[in-house]
Design a protein around this nucleic acid. Structure first.
Lengths: 244, 244
DNA sequence: TATGGTTGTCTATATCAATAGACATTTAGA
DNA sequence: TCTAAATGTCTATTGATATAGACAACCATA
């Protein structure tokens, strides 16, 4: 936490920069010994800002449920979480983080049919206009939203995937029922951007937050593409891990 | 670009959010037909803000050299770039993006010796206090900074790596001279955060920008760790690609 | 129970961010 | 050469951001 100064006149308010930094420190375990954030006056000195600015930052973190201020005692850390999300040939949502949380869940938000546009046809190796099934899903870990994904599947093979997914909550199981016993991750593209409006509501993020965006292509064991998906993760809740 | 609304009272100024969005649209090729950004009045209408706010956003992008406003004509797009950065067993800076740009270069910013702390000793599998060489490097593509990395190497094997790297500009060549003919990427951890002060200067970023952070461990062919590094990439200039 | 350390609240002031409107300047094209 | 469309510049006003200082309320503990 020490060493990095904060930026003024950047379009990003000081209290937000400081809130982000403290959140990172918490998830990094910097305050584990005491279980609480340093006093406001100390933080104000460290960051070189007024105590009121620190209070704005801590207020935002309290709003997120990460800290809780107790008058006379200090500001207690309520929650610190950053899930490690492995990316490999066998990347699946639940398996990867299963040992890090008590319960993982996947929820179907919406589904529809639509024709493949240029990008989707290129990814899934189908003709432009081919019917695709689109699923909007939400990944949860211990009842907290972690990822929000849009997936496309060729409709000829997976026309019923929405219904099966709705009942099982698992892409893997849905694939199995539809004649795909196993599948592998072909490629994952990772970028980062600021959270948009739907990120804020779906992932319960605070405005200005960062999302990691993963575009992934899955194929069956014959190397035929079966799923193309764009997933958005709360950057302060997950880290991607690539093992070779 | 359509559809996503911007957020008010978030600690992130509207002009900055809009600048980020326009930058993304540009790198996505949304305005390739005209080669210029839509008129300020149009953008103001689309984003639902005052024209002056749009001007602040475009001013920031002009400062970055991404657009150039010409009175009477419009705002021209000067530059759009987003490199694809593959992550695999054989991840190297220059090879991966070599076919996307004319010239890649790696520059040594600083080097020092320091003892291993708890984290470094765990990663490199050496005792706490073991002497390490630390390199601060800057990766460039076509003379534009792309990544900024801090790397640690065990000093007993790689005590002279700074000098060799300074002359060759290549970690791979430095390893080879020091008796490591080949090395592989063991694991990469990817997170995202806001740019800090040194990111701004080293990567020539505008304040509030997002950086992708990759923590990587390389090992020699005997699986002995040889390099641990933390690299920071301008999120709007690169995307990571994981191929399985 | 007295004290030091902590969070909570209040007032005041200066600067940044955003809106609103008007008008000048430049360019391209009819 | 006139006109429409675009950027450039200016003034004025409002709300958010940040600083400064003072004091109240609360907690743990000596």
């Amino acid at each position: 936490m020490v060493g990095q100064k904060i930026q003024r006149q950047t379009g990003v308010a000081l209290w937000r920069q400081i809130a982000d930094r403290i959140r990172t420190s918490i998830s990094h375990g910097d305050f584990d010994e005491t279980g609480m954030v340093p006093p406001e006056t100390t933080l104000a000195l460290q960051f070189g800002v007024n105590r009121h600015t620190i209070r704005s930052a801590l207020g935002a973190l309290a709003q997120e449920g990460i800290v809780r201020a107790v008058q006379g005692r200090g500001t207690l850390i309520e929650r610190k979480e950053r899930l490690s999300f492995p990316i490999s040939k066998r990347t699946r949502f639940s398996q990867g983080i299963g040992d890090q949380v008590r319960e993982t869940r996947s929820v179907l938000l919406a589904s529809s049919e639509e024709p493949a546009n240029a990008e989707l046809s290129g990814q899934l190796k189908v003709d432009v206009g081919t019917k695709l099934v689109r699923l909007e899903t939400l990944g949860q870990a211990d009842h907290r939203p972690v990822s929000r994904a849009t997936s496309w599947f060729p409709a000829d093979r997976f026309g019923d995937i929405a219904e099966i997914y709705r009942t099982t909550g698992s892409i893997t199981k849905a694939f199995r029922e539809l004649g795909v016993p196993d599948y592998v991750r072909v490629v994952t593209e990772i970028t980062a951007t600021h959270a948009d409006e739907s990120d804020l509501s779906d992932l319960q993020l605070s405005p200005g937050a960062i999302v990691l965006v993963a575009q992934a292509l899955n194929a069956d064991l014959d190397d035929v593409p079966v799923q193309y998906s764009i997933s958005r993760f709360a950057a302060d809740r997950v880290r991607f891990t690539v093992e070779n």
